[in-house]
Write a protein that binds this DNA or RNA. Structure first.
Lengths: 234, 234
DNA sequence: GTAGAGCCTGAGAGGAACCTGAGAGCCCCT
DNA sequence: AGGGGCTCTCAGGTTCCTCTCAGGCTCTAC
């Protein structure tokens, strides 16, 4: 990690599907967050009081009440806890909008963990509770700015598509470390992605073409394991 | 943010609908204000004494008394605290007009956060308590003057409708930063807007036609995310 | 040195996201 | 009551992403 948090942020994950909760919790813990979870609205309300999270990830469909209701019942203290709503793609999307104020956000299922984590960081950063951690990811002469979504190598701006961006971002978060195919697929692609794992190769190829056009190769293949971001070596 | 306040302004939000309070409070916090809220007139009066806000956002319909009464009971100190009244569209509108003193203002429900924040800033600026922050928003060769509501590109004046103006204003407040569709819709459209999210595309199209007629494109689409105001790239 | 596994990349189908013109409803002003 | 302007809806057309697939290349094990 580029700058480990002094006091880790507490995140409350609320969803009734244990699978989803597990996947998200694991990913967030891995990223250095302190995580607690709840499966119902009632549990969530109790957890907010005890756990005092800095942010909630809140599914809209809960067994006992809608996610909105949870948000509403939090009342005044609510304003202190930004929420990221999880919603199915088809419907509700419009419904969410009116209820998300400037600080909230929503993510449609299925999503990639990369995306969820990125949004969490954005909100924590903006809510000022975060240390003034730069929103700039840097490795060698590559820069990635989350605010503006601008990417450059050696000062030359580079246009990336959404997937290319997520992939590069994940690599930049774990510089020099070897990331397995599974790790990358799990993090960068939607969690229910069931397609051909070879997409990864295609996208690595795309990224290389765009990045390495302006300097020595940075994305290295680690045969039969995965990929790693490394400085070019003599 | 472009110019973080030295000593943040304190805003007191008074409304009996928790939803509204939430939405406003969150939005204002993210804008760098210090916010406190009250749900009744009595609470409001107490909060004014303790919290000493620089400005109040005050709903006219309160469970225990009318917003006007709150204003009146503040008596002498009242003059120090400008008020923005919230009122339902239908009636009262005329009534408000007569009762607002020089420094006050009113906004009819439903409103857009963009509009509310803009009015708050205007009042704070005029009440002299604000830093001499310019009321002129500038990006590249685009200028937007909040006082006169004039917009120009490269010196050429441009006529904008109300919605176009709010949209451009929001973009100018967040130059270079990528704004998601949700953020823009939440901020620029009324908080209860439940319609088709594609209005945004229409209005971006309108704005582009008017703005980019006089120079290189400034409003850039960030596919599957949102829009950003950027300088044209070579 | 050679076979086989692992990896790279070009081409392209399909689809998602986006742009824009046309027009209906509404409000306000006259 | 009529007209003009604004906001929003809708549909057609377009762009450009994503993922699949196949052929060829590279590395490693033996």
């Amino acid at each position: 990690m580029n700058s480990p948090e002094q006091t880790p942020h507490r995140i409350l994950v609320v969803d009734d599907e244990p699978n989803i909760v597990d996947v998200i919790s694991m990913a967030l813990r891995f990223q250095g967050f302190e995580v607690q979870s709840a499966g119902t609205g009632a549990e969530a309300l109790a957890a907010v009081a005890q756990f005092k999270p800095h942010l909630m990830v809140l599914d809209i469909m809960l067994p006992d009440m809608e996610g909105f209701d949870v948000a509403q019942r939090l009342g005044a203290q609510r304003a202190q806890v930004p929420i990221i709503f999880l919603t199915a793609r088809d419907a509700t999307e419009d419904k969410v909008r009116g209820l998300t104020s400037g600080g909230d956000d929503y993510v449609t299922k299925p999503f990639s963990l990369e995306e969820l984590v990125a949004r969490i960081r954005t909100i924590l950063r903006r809510s000022g509770q975060s240390d003034a951690e730069s929103n700039l990811l840097v490795f060698e002469d590559v820069e990635l700015d989350d605010e503006t979504r601008e990417v450059s190598r050696a000062g030359v701006p580079i246009d990336l598509t959404a997937t290319e961006y997520r992939l590069l971002r994940f690599l930049l978060l774990n510089p020099r470390r070897v990331l397995t195919r599974a790790q990358i697929l799990d993090q960068v692609w939607d969690y229910d992605f069931g397609g051909d794992a070879r997409v990864l190769e295609t996208y690595v190829s795309y990224l290389r073409r765009k990045l390495d056009a302006h300097g020595p190769p940075l994305i290295h293949t680690v045969r039969s394991v995965g990929y790693a971001l490394r400085a070019a070596r003599a």
